[in-house]
Design a protein around this nucleic acid. Structure first.
Length: 431
RNA sequence: UCCGGAGUAGCUCAGCUGGUAGAGCAGGUGGCUGUUAACCACUUUGUCGGGGGUUCAAGUCCCUCCUCCGGAGCCA
């Protein structure tokens, strides 16, 4: 008898199969009982009938507990009464292990309890639905980049200094060389990569030691940074838009069932697959003031501003051309207005906030040098970065996507810690 | 770091102006041949977050500490 995955049972209608997995739930009704099992690919209902199986198999209903591991043999049969449309008419149940009283029931639980039991919570339906979407978002991003000539270029996680000099970093003792810091972005290294390979990206964990305490911040999260030579500001945004729309389409194509488990508004996600809006920072300020925001001329967008900006928009919004004071030192100045830089943030709709930060980079040695001096940056540590402007400098641009933010939006998950297997936040390092 | 909120059974919570702790679920026992977080009956379970104080009496009032949640800021 063939071992099949639950996701494939529709190809085995009226055939005998073997399923291997875990007890999700059971319901008993006298001479018939139902075994709901999952195997990581899906969930299926098994029916056990008293007069069709041995007494030993029938009595397994008293022995099996939630999350016990089992190997079940039976006949796949289409049945409308069964969730998923197919059920398994059970012939035999082999117990791999009986689980003692499982802490996570199918009823409500509080966040703290669930996070303490994250290693088990991962087995709940909404959790595996989110994690499968995360998998696809990850691969869709890399697939798009691969199709568009970007090479994977792994940047280091242990770095001698801050990338942008502003955010708080985690410190790690490093042999006799003093302290190293956990990377908060591989971007600067990617800028070296493009001078070798033309277009590159990295994708890995980054770390922020800020004591952020919100539903959209993690201290350890996964970021994809992409960088491309000879790409300027407008084309940079075009690449981002294509990439995000590719991700939306891939998720819609592969995860309708998971999106339903999550009760995601699928129409809203479909509507986001249309040309993105663009506005300058100045236009955004003017617009926000008409909505009642008290944002200043040179202010960054607050959390409420991000929500207001997109609340009547089905598609994400690019906010571009920012005052140079509130953006990183490496962003290129707008030649039409030296007070502005050619950066763009992409704000997702439905209140999910910023998902991409990107910019054209300053490629002029003298201008970059001056900006670094103005910001009191340790020039010795960054000489290599300045060198990139010395030996064959070219216009170039790049952007960084926060994987969890994007997965949050795709899956419609309110809390960012649910879209990564084991979230690291200010007050949580376990499990 | 600042502002707000919460800690009571294994879990989710109720417990009024102080009078000595309760419900649902889970667990256990029994019943039911189509259940959908199944249902019905019976049933076990408590350092009321820790410490201190007021009081004849504190889950309840006061002080303090701890833990966590939400929001702000910072960012992706």
């Amino acid at each position: 008898m063939d071992w099949v995955f639950i996701k494939d049972v529709k190809d085995h209608n009226d055939k005998e199969v073997t399923l291997k997995g875990w007890v999700y739930n059971k319901r008993s009704s006298g001479k018939i009982w139902f075994l709901i099992m999952r195997d990581g690919t899906g969930i299926i209902q098994g029916v056990v009938l008293k007069n069709e199986v041995s007494e030993d198999v029938f009595n397994k209903k008293d022995e099996l507990t939630q999350e016990s591991s089992i190997i079940v043999r039976g006949l796949i049969h289409e049945d409308k009464r069964s969730p998923g449309g197919y059920e398994l008419v059970v012939r035999d149940i082999e117990v791999v292990q009986i689980a003692p009283e499982y802490p996570i029931t199918l009823k409500e639980h509080g966040v703290e309890f669930l996070m303490d039991n994250r290693h088990l919570w991962l087995r709940s339906s909404k959790q595996w639905a989110v994690l499968r979407i995360r998998h696809t978002v990850y691969y869709a991003i890399t697939e798009y980049l691969n199709q568009n000539g970007f090479f994977r270029f792994d940047s280091p996680l242990l770095t001698p200094n801050a990338c942008e000099g502003t955010t708080t970093l985690f410190t790690v003792p490093y042999f006799d060389l003093g302290n190293a810091y956990l990377s908060q972005s591989g971007q600067l290294y990617l800028e070296a990569g493009i001078m070798s390979l033309g277009r590159v990206y990295d994708f890995g964990p980054v770390f922020r030691a800020e004591k952020s305490k919100t539903r959209k911040h993690l201290t350890e999260f996964w970021m994809m940074d992409a960088e491309a030579a000879f790409v300027e500001h407008d084309e940079n945004m075009k690449i981002q838009e294509e990439l995000i729309r590719f991700v939306i389409n891939t998720v819609l194509e592969k995860h309708l069932a998971d999106l339903e488990i999550l009760e995601r508004d699928i129409d809203q996600l479909k509507k986001a697959d249309a040309p993105f809006k663009r506005m300058t920072h100045k236009e955004a300020i003017i617009f926000l003031r008409t909505k009642g925001s008290e944002i200043g001329d040179k202010d960054d967008l607050g959390a409420k501003d991000e929500v207001m900006l997109t609340e009547n928009s089905d598609v994400p919004v690019f906010v571009e051309k920012w005052p140079k004071e509130i953006k990183a030192f490496y962003m290129k100045r707008d030649k039409d207005n030296p007070d502005l830089v050619l950066g763009a943030d992409l704000i997702a709709p439905e209140g999910f906030g910023e998902i991409i930060g990107g910019s054209q980079r300053e490629d002029d040695y003298d201008l970059l040098y001056k900006r670094m001096v103005d910001e009191n940056m340790p020039l010795d540590d960054y000489q290599w970065f300045l060198d990139l402007r010395k030996y064959g400098s070219v216009p170039h641009s790049g952007f960084g996507i926060g994987l969890e933010r994007l997965v949050q939006w795709m899956s419609g998950t309110k809390q960012i810690r649910e879209v990564i297997p084991f979230a690291r936040t200010i007050y949580r390092l376990k499990p």
